[in-house]
Design a protein around this nucleic acid. Structure first.
Length: 597
RNA sequence: GGGGACGUAGUUCAGUUGGUUAGAACGCUGCCCUGUCACGGCAGAGGCCGCGGGUUCGAGUCCCGUCGUCCCCGCCA
């Protein structure tokens, strides 16, 4: 027997036709001599009627149906009487009057039902993922993911990009995140690593002449998880030869337009751009959320004596955060927002603007004016304590003052986001369908690694510095800007890329600046340094998180809602119960001994 | 590694100051019901209160430990 229609397909125009539906019993309404069954598949549900008067034997058969049985219903499509139409579903104007019923499979009572309105807890959903995935919302998200991926593939392919696969079993490069390791049986004691990204392979594809590459590819990072971080995740990875950053922006804006269109949204291009320094000063973050107003430096509105009264540093920024339409806060609410502020460096919070207005009316008025705050907006001030902070680092090479500024800005930026989340209902700026994209450019090349007491690559060590900063690589690493860029959406980093180093001598200089000896560079990246010597075209690219894009499009709070088989916060797959110990024999074959305690 | 929230019926939850027989809704089982669509009505079954220990005459409730899930910080080039 052949299915003639899916469960979401039948309409009034089909009335009178014979139809065969197959699917799950979504709900059963047994009225005695009349039984209604909603038969569900991924396209929807259709009501099937069993009438005792019409066919007693068939009616008896339908009596045994239970939730989640898989059935085939054969019958005639009937236009419903006007008073029995269900306006809530697309198939609600028709029903299938059954002539025959086949029970294709019975079902045990499931731990929860896909049709249930209240969700079971996540542990349950992950253990019985196949049932959870039957839910409308999950079916929608997975379909959305498919459409988005296809739109991106189609766009990039049309623009001349080849989708090229790169190895999953590759070489461990102990930079950045921890690797997932795969032991080699043939060479006991040696390990492959799963890629954190196909970074070096895609660069080598440029050296190999493929010119434009992309891949929708799984990446693996053994770091602690978050709602927006899974140990394996999917990147839209691309690389091109001879690009300016603008060329990369165009491609990304192009495929994002296609992806959002596939999801039913129109977005505006080109995206606005902002340097890293601007982002930090205006938003206290390298991934600004543009849906709310930026912060304002109101340092110049304070008189010198005010600053000493408030014990505030005059040389550091004084930042006003404005959250629209929050209204006046009660004493208790003010106390409640204090814990949202984490005093980085010597940053301190003034959450009571009213009090400031009382003590310094002129200053307060100027702050209102400068920040453009409306009377009903919430204003809080973040400044630096005038007491010199005891800084953990020694040695005078680092730009200390700048770092203190940075601490004030980022402390304010974190508070801004936390306040925005808390008062989302008041300002209403977080309603869906408002997509504020942004390019953040000119990232610093290096970051000071406090633990390792050394400079580390802010992006990755293959990122090209700005031409104009080349001579500062040794003398003033902190001020070197990279040809790196992030694409940001509503405060989420969607992707990150750069123009790469294509000259072997510059690559060596960067490794050197990162404190790597010639020997270290050779053992870790020798193959790559060598490849650079055989005629490497200038190249650059970017990688975007597919999961995050789909998450935002789905309006979901967690990546787990858009990944069919995700892992828990402890990187466990509850359905298959992985990871597990393995047998002694397996370990022996790999030459691995597990330390017991 | 650190901080926080949660864990009670198949599921979602309630459970007072530590007190006698641990409740509700949905689901499940049986019966009734010819126009329901989150059908309705009646009856019923269903509990290692995550696990281990302690305090107490008495623990779902208090304490300690442990396991699990979620969120955050660190971490994620």
């Amino acid at each position: 027997m052949q299915r003639t229609h899916t469960c979401g397909a039948l309409r009034v125009s089909d009335a009178g036709r014979k139809a065969v539906l197959m699917g799950w019993v979504n709900r059963r309404r047994d009225l005695g001599s009349l039984i209604f069954i909603d038969v569900r598949d991924r396209t929807g549900a259709t009501q099937v009627v069993f009438d005792r008067e019409r066919n007693p034997a068939l009616h008896d058969k339908a009596e045994v149906l239970r939730n989640e049985y898989v059935v085939a219903a054969i019958g005639t499509v009937k236009k419903r009487d006007p008073n029995t139409v269900n306006k809530n579903i697309p198939t609600g104007e028709v029903e299938l009057v059954a002539d025959e019923l086949r029970i294709l499979n019975q079902a045990k009572q499931p731990p929860f039902l896909p049709s249930e309105t209240v969700l079971p807890n996540e542990e349950m959903r992950l253990k019985y993922r196949y049932i959870d995935l039957r839910r409308d919302a999950m079916q929608f998200n997975i379909e959305l993911r498919h459409k988005v991926a296809m739109a991106i593939r189609g766009y990039l392919s049309a623009k001349g990009f080849f989708e090229i696969e790169t190895p999953f079993m590759t070489r461990s490069t102990p930079e950045g995140a921890r690797d997932y390791l795969v032991p080699s049986r043939v060479q006991p004691g040696s390990f492959y690593a799963l890629p954190q990204s196909p970074q070096l392979f895609k660069q080598i594809l440029m050296i190999s002449g493929f010119d434009k590459y992309f891949q929708i590819v799984r990446c693996f990072r053994d770091e602690d998880l978050r709602a927006d971080r899974q140990p394996e995740f999917t990147q839209i990875d691309l690389e091109m030869s001879y690009p300016q950053p603008d060329r990369v922006y165009e491609v990304v804006e192009g495929f994002l337009t296609a992806a959002f269109k596939a999801a039913g949204f129109q977005i505006k291009t080109p995206f606005p751009r902002m340097t890293y320094d601007e982002a930090i000063r205006l938003y206290g973050s390298d991934k600004p959320d543009l849906r709310l107003p930026p912060m304002t430096d109101v340092r110049d509105t304070f008189a010198q004596e005010n600053l000493s009264n408030l014990a505030v540093s005059a040389s550091s920024p004084i930042v006003a955060i404005c959250i629209p339409k929050v209204g006046e806060l009660s004493r208790k609410e003010r106390d409640d927002i204090k814990p949202l502020f984490s005093g980085r460096g010597n940053a301190k919070l003034f959450e009571d603007f009213k009090r400031l207005e009382k003590s310094f009316p002129e200053t307060a008025a100027k702050i209102r004016e400068k920040s453009g705050a409306q009377p009903e907006d919430l204003i809080v001030i973040v400044a630096a304590d005038s007491k010199p902070a005891t800084h953990p680092s020694e040695g005078g090479v680092k730009p200390e003052v700048k770092q203190h500024d940075h601490a004030v800005y980022t402390a304010a930026g974190l508070l801004r986001v936390a306040l925005a989340q808390r008062y989302a209902a008041q300002h209403g700026a977080f309603v869906r369908r408002d997509f504020r994209f942004l390019w953040v450019t000119d990232f610093p090349m290096f970051e000071w690694d406090e633990q390792g007491k050394r400079w580390a690559a802010a992006h990755h060590p293959f990122t090209s510095p700005h031409e104009r900063d080349m001579d500062k690589l040794q003398s003033d690493p902190a001020s070197v800007r990279a040809l790196a860029y992030d694409v940001v959406l509503n405060g989420t980093e969607l992707g990150s890329g750069s123009i790469r180093i294509h000259r072997q001598d510059i690559q060596r200089t960067i490794f050197h600046a990162l404190g790597m000896t010639e020997e270290e560079a050779h053992t870790r990246f020798g193959f790559f340094l060598e490849a650079l010597e055989y005629g490497t075209p200038p190249h650059g690219g970017i990688a975007l998180g597919l999961d995050r894009i789909v998450m935002i499009l789905a309006g979901a709070e967690s990546l787990r809602e858009v990944i069919p088989f995700p892992k828990t916060a402890r990187a466990v797959d509850l359905m298959v119960d992985a990871p597990t110990p393995v047998s002694e024999a397996q370990l022996k074959e790999l030459g691995i001994q597990v330390k017991k305690n």
